[in-house]
């Protein structure tokens, strides 16, 4: 084979991958740069370095309210959706039953439906059952959206468990509940924490459904959306950078927990 052409193709492909990564990260890096830029209307060349936009955000009580709402929502969603995800993953791991395929479709369907449709459906439904505009309307809606992610993360962990481990506990006299408490849950612990971080990050970032159902309890992304709709100003970059750092912290923790092998396997 003509190795020189081969090398050229490989070099071209590497450049191409770099270009794709530049495209993917350009907007993220741009927003970080502009969050420190003094000009009100973003243009090239840049103005001078400033923390003005961070100060504006810091002194804005609306943003603080939103941060508070977002945190309450994210934590509640993290706990609820991880619980539902765990139950579902365990059911899928342990049992087979009639309509199991239907059960799994129900478990994994939400992310395949456009958010705008879910948002409208939830808005109408919550108005109907008298649950609209509350902080927990957002919690309920986000839990629906997030539990499939939790389920997937925990199911992957259960994939690695030795199939004889649970029956061994039963044979040694443990009830199903005791085996769950001392075998399954400890084994799944890293995945459970990872699922919590992941679902919190998803909830922290979601704006379509939150915008429709939150009423006056705006979350941070809803504030961003409202700034975008009104007088666009670089505050948005400062808030965005803050959201980015928060979500990334959660994602990195999740990633570390999933990839790092726990040194002692199921300690009890």
């Amino acid at each position: 084979m003509n190795t020189r052409i081969d090398k050229l193709i490989t070099a071209g492909l590497i450049l191409y991958v770099v270009a794709v990564f530049i495209f993917v990260f350009a907007p993220i890096i741009t927003s970080m740069i502009f969050s420190f830029n003094s000009d009100r209307f973003a243009s090239i060349p840049l103005g001078s370095f400033t923390l003005h936009w961070y100060e504006t955000v810091y002194n804005d009580p609306d943003v603080w309210d939103a941060v508070q709402t977002s945190i309450i929502v994210a934590v509640s969603v993290g706990i609820l959706s991880t619980f539902i995800g765990f139950c579902t993953a365990y059911t899928d791991y342990r049992y087979s039953f009639r309509f199991k395929n239907g059960y799994l479709v129900l478990a994994l369907l939400p992310p395949t439906i456009p958010l705008i449709i879910i948002a409208l459906a939830m808005l109408a439904w919550f108005a109907r059952i008298g649950a609209s505009g509350q902080i927990w309307s957002v919690v309920i809606a986000h839990t629906v959206l997030c539990s499939p992610f939790a389920m997937a993360v925990i199911r992957l962990r259960l994939q690695q468990i030795d199939l004889d481990l649970e029956p061994a506990a039963w044979n040694l006299g443990a009830s199903e509940w005791v085996a769950m408490r001392y075998v399954i849950v400890p084994f799944c612990k890293p995945a459970i924490v990872a699922a919590m971080c992941l679902t919190m990050a998803v909830s922290f970032d979601e704006f379509v459904v939150a915008w429709f159902v939150s009423g006056l309890n705006k979350t941070v992304p809803v504030i961003i959306l409202e700034i975008l709709q009104g007088n666009v100003d670089p505050q948005i970059n400062a808030i965005g950078t803050f959201v980015f750092v928060t979500s990334m912290t959660l994602v990195v923790i999740a990633q570390l927990l999933v990839t790092l092998r726990s040194p002692k396997r199921s300690s009890t």
Partner: peptide
């Protein structure tokens, strides 16, 4: 996991 809204706004600027 980064705000899609903020990324869109960045493209607006770019």
């Amino acid at each position: 996991f980064t705000s899609y809204l903020v990324r869109t706004f960045s493209w607006y600027v770019i």
